[in-house]
Structure formats: C-alpha cells, structure tokens
Computed example of a mutant assay.
Amino acid sequence: MKKHSTTMTKAVVVGSLILTCSLLFMASGCSTRSDEAAAIKIGESLKKMQYEIQVADIGTTVEDRIKKQEEFKPFLTEQGYIVFTANRQSEIATGYALNNNLNIKVKQIEFENMKQDNMEKDTFSFRYSIDLELSPSELTSSKGTSVVTHTGHMSVVKQDNEWKILKDLDNGFIADE
C-alpha cells in the first residue's frame, strides 16, 4: 500500500508543477498585453497633449512656451525629452495652430506594435496614425473643418517601473499636407 501512496504523491506533485507552470505562462502573456496597453496609453497621452490645441488657450510669452514644453517631461525619458525639445515637437503644432487660427483636436489614434525580434525586454516599438481635426478658431471667420492623418514611429521603454517615451519620430506635420 505504501508504494501506491508514493506513486500517488509523485503524480500530485508533477500535476501541481504542470499546473503552476501553465498558470505562470498564462500570467506572463497577460502581463505582456497589459504592459503593451500601458505603453500605448502613455503614447496616446503625449500625442493628445501635443495635438489638442485651442488657439484661445495658447500663451504668447517665452515663459508660456517654456512652461508648456515642461509639461511633456513626465511622458518622456531624459534622452527622449532632450530630443523632443531640440526638435521643437512641442511647439510646431502650436505655432501652426496660432499662425492659421485653427483649433486642433485628436479624432483618433491607432498604434501598431512592431514586435521586432531584437527588441529588449520592457521595450515596445510602435507605428502610429493620428487623425487630426482642424477647425477654425473663434478668432477667424472661416467655417470649414478638415481632417488630416499624421503618422509616426514611437519607442516606449519601462524606466523605474514606469512607461516612458524614448523616441517619437513624427513623419512630417500637418503643415506639409
């Protein structure tokens, strides 16, 4: 009877091990999906901050522009912030809106995970597409609205347990349309 009990114990241990491994494998898959969703969310937040513009709310002083530029810091790595500001990404859309008396609103953002084999852990590479609605501000008599599509590429990394944007490469701007 003792031999039967030992065999049964081994079967329970092996079964438990298989169940545990299966659960861990499934949990890691769920974790990857939730990490991807969190990385996309930070990308969407940055792009909305960059492109949701009301002409009446644009500050005109250098201090206003510096303050606005600093609002992007929480979304970017230190290196990402340096490049973002050096390329004036926080100012280009605002300048376009101001010069043309157009409000800009994000209609839709889509991210596509590039899933490259050589990607490091806790890193995502996305292509994105943004539909921007351009509408006349209250400072103009123009009535028509239009929608333009803007595309780009973004790299998002986990840094100190938070998702941050390392790189945001816009493919042109609405002024180029």
Score class of each variant (00 low, 15 high):
Lys41His: 10
Ser28Phe: 00
Val12Pro: 04
Ile40Met: 08
Ser5Asn: 02
Gly15Thr: 00
Ile42Ala: 15
Cys30Val: 06
Thr32Val: 13
Phe25Asp: 08
Met8Asp: 02
Cys21Glu: 04
Ser5Ala: 01
Ala39Thr: 00
Ile18Pro: 15
Gly29Leu: 08
Thr9Phe: 12
Ala37Met: 06
Met8Trp: 10
Ser34Trp: 13
Cys21Leu: 11
Lys41Trp: 02
Leu24Phe: 10
Ser16Val: 01
Ile42Tyr: 06
Thr6Arg: 05
Thr32Arg: 14
Ser34Tyr: 13
Ser31Pro: 02
Asp35His: 07
Thr6Ile: 06
Ser31Cys: 07
Thr20Lys: 05
Lys41Gly: 14
Thr32Lys: 14
Gly15Val: 00
Ala27Lys: 11
Leu19Asn: 09
Cys30Leu: 11
Ile18Met: 12
Met26Ser: 11
Thr20Asp: 10
Ser31Met: 07
Val14Glu: 10
Val12Tyr: 09
Phe25His: 06
Ser5Pro: 08
Ser34Met: 11
Lys10Ile: 01
Thr7Leu: 12
Ser28Asp: 03
Ser31Glu: 04
Gly29Glu: 08
Asp35Cys: 05
Leu19Glu: 06
Ser31Ile: 01
Thr9Cys: 05
Thr20Arg: 04
Gly15Ala: 01
Thr32Ser: 14
Lys10Arg: 01
Thr9Ile: 00
Lys10Val: 01
Ala27Phe: 04
Ala11Ser: 03
Ala27Asp: 13
Leu24Ala: 13
Thr6Leu: 08
Leu17Thr: 15
Val14His: 09
Phe25Arg: 03
Ser28Ala: 04
Lys41Tyr: 03
Thr7Tyr: 13
Val13Phe: 15
Gly29Ile: 04
Cys21Trp: 10
Ala11His: 00
Ser34Val: 03
Thr20Asn: 12
Thr20Gly: 15
Cys21Thr: 06
Ser16Gly: 15
Ser31Thr: 02
Ser22Arg: 02
Thr7Glu: 05
Leu19Arg: 03
Ala11Trp: 00
Ala11Lys: 01
Arg33Thr: 08
Ile40Pro: 02
Asp35Arg: 04
Leu19Gln: 06
Thr9Gly: 05
Gly29Pro: 03
Leu23Tyr: 12
Val14Trp: 13
Phe25Tyr: 10
Ile18Glu: 10
Val13Pro: 10
Cys21Pro: 13
Thr7Phe: 15
Ala38Cys: 07
Phe25Asn: 08
Ala27Ile: 00
Ser28Cys: 03
Ala27Trp: 02
Thr32Gln: 14
Met8Asn: 04
Ser5Phe: 15
Ala27Gln: 13
Ile42Ser: 15
Lys41Leu: 12
Ala11Thr: 00
Thr32Asp: 13
Glu36Pro: 11
Cys21Tyr: 12
Ala37Cys: 04
Ser22Cys: 12
Met26Asp: 07
Thr7Trp: 12
Met8Gln: 04
Thr32Leu: 14
Glu36Arg: 14
Thr9Val: 00
Ile18Ser: 13
Ser16Tyr: 09
Phe25Met: 07
Ala39Gly: 07
Gly29His: 05
Ala27Arg: 10
Ser5Lys: 02
Phe25Pro: 04
Cys21Met: 09
Ser5His: 11
